[in-house]
Design a protein around this nucleic acid. Structure first.
Lengths: 199, 199
DNA sequence: GTACGAAAATGTAGTCGTTGAACTTTTTTG
DNA sequence: CAAAAAAGTTCAACGACTACATTTTCGTAC
């Protein structure tokens, strides 16, 4: 028998266990509420030990957010590969608003709506989500500096990065995301334009 | 004898216990490091039980930050009672920079320097300190809106409040606080001026 | 000064997330 | 097939924090 599979049996099982854990966690969390479910419950539902659970996910919160990568790459790309003529703050505004819209598309799915509501209503999850974004502040600041021709550790670039990421929260909690994005980014766009007249 | 003392024996003891706890905590934390000291160690050093400790301080982190009030009042006052002619972002910049300077004055004291270093180096404490400030975002946003003649829930005002509070972190981690404050607030000042040409 | 009620302090036991160590099972590799 | 490597399990424990029942301490009124 040819070993045409690049993925061994082991990695398949690993992926399956991981998936079982994530699925069980999501189901239980949506059913009973995040705080009403212990890690032991999740481990039992996935038929693994608690110790094993923590070998797949570094924390209880990580069970909810399965994909934590891509965010940084997309963020940097939004700045670097922005459509010509648009300023950096504009590009960031569109990128963040796009992330919102992508969610809005799935709002039809009641399970997805319940998921986002759970994240927003649970402090631990809300904080973790926010942390997942702000973790990439440094990378974003570097991309902005490079793109604007500013020195590496430029404070204004770091500030723009931080403010843009924080603006996400403002956009998120408003009923009209588009208007909230426009109004909160207006500050940054005008401020940035004053500092960088060109481009 | 006249009862000139509004404080009975009970309240005196209470205050003393609280002080003993805070002192013991600070001493132990600075000595061994925050994560290397358990609440039991602090309680033992202050000669009280762990249960009593948690009746005085709601969490381990609260042992470090004894005064959590005043921040909001000072923040709102900085906006409302700003020197005429100054814009709101300018007032906030000065207020935040002032908080930094007040620290800088004590930098001579090696214990104070060690304290701030401990806070910055310990994630749990850094987060707690940041939370103490951002908790007053709503109040600050309201004060700004009132002062600018904007409607209650104006997004731009909320954004300015959030950004200004976040700027504190940028200022704090830079070696030259004054320049960092100027550069990061430049964004906000210019942006705000564009939206509110008058004052 | 004593008796009584309120407040405060204590010890115990327990929850919950998380980690470490020792041991067993499975999988890969030479 | 044997040996090494990796993964899983069990058991124990840690640390922050809480609920509970109990006891000490304080303020006050008699």
């Amino acid at each position: 028998m040819p070993v045409t599979e690049p993925t061994g049996r082991r990695e398949r099982k690993k992926a399956q266990t991981r998936q079982s854990l994530a699925d069980a966690a999501l189901r239980l969390f949506l059913d009973r509420g995040y705080d009403q479910v212990g890690v032991k419950d999740v481990a039992d539902a996935a038929d693994v030990s608690v110790t094993t659970l923590f070998k797949y996910f570094p924390s209880k919160e990580a069970l909810v957010f399965d994909q934590d990568d891509d965010i940084e790459a997309a963020l940097v790309a939004a700045v670097r590969e922005r459509t010509p003529g648009r300023s950096i703050p504009q590009a960031l505004r569109e990128h963040i608003l796009l992330g919102q819209s992508r969610l809005a598309v799935h709002t039809a799915d009641p399970r997805f709506a319940a998921f986002t509501r759970m994240v927003e209503d649970t402090p631990a999850l809300r904080d973790h989500a926010h942390r997942m974004w702000t973790r990439h502040e440094a990378a974003l600041a570097r991309a902005i500096a490079t793109e604007a021709g500013a020195p590496e550790g430029d404070v204004a670039c770091a500030a723009l990065a931080r403010f843009a990421l924080e603006a996400r929260v403002l956009v998120r909690r408003h009923t009209d995301p588009r208007r909230a994005a426009e109004e909160s980014f207006a500050l940054l766009e005008h401020g940035w334009a004053a500092l960088h007249p060109d481009g």
